[in-house]
Design a protein around this nucleic acid. Structure first.
Length: 473
DNA sequence: CAGTGATTAAC
DNA sequence: TTAATCACT
């Protein structure tokens, strides 16, 4: 009796529900992870993220070996080829059961349904588990039985289920066989063949051990002031756990355990813990939205009436935004942070996304795609949810038209300009007041002969143009 | 009269 | 969340 454990976005040994059950079944366990270059390309997976994932796989292989489980890394061009591959792989290794953790996006659900059907036709049983979120899609519905579309009532209902939900991290699985030697995965070979950048990075060392270390660091440090410092991009005030969460090197239950300790007691109102818990709930929320409204993962707006919006398709403005040359310091610093590090501070994701979709009136889907192609933590649900929120095509419930003033945002969240200057070094000689004031900025740039672009668009005009475009719907 | 703080409308 | 407006210094 051998169980086949299929790793996807759950690259860890600890608190992995499918792996735990596979090891508890009483037989041997074989593990597999798939390299799917064509599928990755279709889904705009970023090279940095794939490189990070491969490095995580290398660590995972070592930890599995300690449990007597061999991890096979196999290449299959795209999702359509997976069912046939899995079936042959399982038969070749005499596996009689397939274990995996559920994924919720449209294409992933289709893939998994087909795999289940094909395996069951071969008399191979399949077991799939709720692992990726704190509370599974479908378990939280409105009074009329639909999916929530507004965060606040979703959260209320989420908290209501908290005491009944099974959210304790699992103990480490017991070894199923004698420890194996740590396998050498062809990571470097795959990486160079796919043209991926190298790893490691100091900010995001790969693997679940590093993820646990970062969580402990955050829990004992920035968590306490999270509510006060999380919006300041110059400060290391966030958890920075997103790359590990995205590939499952850490589980949301392990994160939750840091804020909900004894008897599932909620963190105090107004505390850092409460603010961070909110972000974990947002993560659930956007994945629930993707399941409840599958059109959002198929390039459709959540708000159907915005489907006809006349976006500008201005290649030049799009390029300026992508390369951090819009003439709006906070936007440019944000976009350069993304390009240079594969990560962007959450506050700035909102600022940058709103600038593209409102100021430049460029289709949010182009921004969504660019983020996916560059982010280390790219996650369809969170990225799509964030973009649609920024573009006002999503679930945002405010009664007014949301459009950030980039200068007001930088004044509030980067008052001394420390973050802007870090990523836009040419603005080093510019005074802090000028960084948040277009007129003074233009004057200082002229006077000090600094090479920095003039704003691609005037804020007031852009604002009016966006308002008019949405009014026309 | 320029600058600032409080209030409110936007849907 | 922003910006316009009004009261006030």
């Amino acid at each position: 009796m051998t169980a086949l454990m299929w790793f996807r976005r759950d690259l860890r040994v600890s608190d992995n529900r499918a792996l735990y059950q596979a090891t508890a079944a009483g037989g041997g366990v074989v593990a597999v992870a798939l390299i799917t270059p064509l599928q990755w390309q279709k889904q705009n997976e970023s090279p940095a993220k794939l490189s990070f994932w491969l490095a995580c796989l290398q660590e995972l292989a070592g930890r599995l070996a300690e449990l007597g489980i061999k991890l096979h890394v196999e290449e299959v061009p795209d999702n359509a080829d997976i069912p046939e591959f899995m079936q042959q792989f399982a038969r070749a290794r005499k596996c009689d059961a397939l274990y995996f953790n559920r994924e919720y996006e449209y294409y992933e659900q289709q893939r998994d349904e087909t795999v289940k059907r094909v395996m069951q036709a071969q008399k191979i049983r399949t077991f799939d588990f709720a692992d990726r979120l704190l509370i599974e899609p479908g378990r939280l519905l409105t009074g009329s039985g639909g999916y929530y579309t507004v965060f606040t009532p979703f959260k209320k209902s989420w908290l209501g289920l908290l005491s009944r939900a099974d959210l304790e991290p699992l103990p480490l699985p017991a070894p199923v066989a004698a420890a194996l030697p740590t396998p050498e995965l062809p990571v470097a070979e795959i990486s160079s063949r796919l043209g991926l950048p190298g790893w490691p990075s100091d900010l995001w060392p790969a693997g679940e051990t590093a993820a646990q270390k970062r969580l402990a660091e955050f829990a004992g440090g920035a968590l306490e002031t999270y509510h006060e410092l999380r919006d300041l991009p110059a400060v290391d005030g966030t958890s920075r756990l997103s790359p590990w969460l995205a590939c499952g090197a850490i589980s949301p239950r392990q994160c939750l355990a840091v804020v909900i300790r004894d008897n599932k007691k909620l963190p105090a109102a107004g505390s850092g813990g409460e603010a961070w818990l909110n972000e974990l709930v947002w993560r659930d929320f956007y994945t629930h939205v993707v399941v409840g409204f599958p059109r959002v993962s198929r390039s459709q707006p959540f708000q159907k009436k915005t489907a006809g919006l006349q976006w500008r398709y201005d290649e030049c403005d799009l390029k300026a935004w992508q390369s951090g040359l819009t003439g709006y310091p906070i936007v440019d610093a944000a976009m350069r942070q993304l390009k240079q590090t594969g990560w962007m501070h959450n506050r700035l994701r909102m600022v940058a996304a709103m600038f593209l979709s409102k100021h430049l009136l460029i289709d949010w889907r182009l921004g969504e795609k660019y983020f996916m192609q560059n982010l280390l933590d790219g996650d369809l649900a969170a990225n799509n949810g964030g973009w649609q929120w920024s573009a006002s095509t999503g679930t945002d419930a405010v009664p007014y038209f949301r459009i950030f003033n980039p200068f007001t945002q930088s004044q509030r969240f980067d008052a001394d300009g420390g973050f802007i200057r870090r990523y836009c070094p040419e603005l080093e000689p510019v005074s802090a007041v000028a960084l948040h004031d277009p007129k003074k900025l233009a004057a200082e740039i002229a006077k000090k002969k600094i090479s920095y672009p003039a704003p691609v668009v005037d804020h007031k005009l852009a604002r009016e143009r966006a308002l008019a475009a949405f009014k026309n719907l």
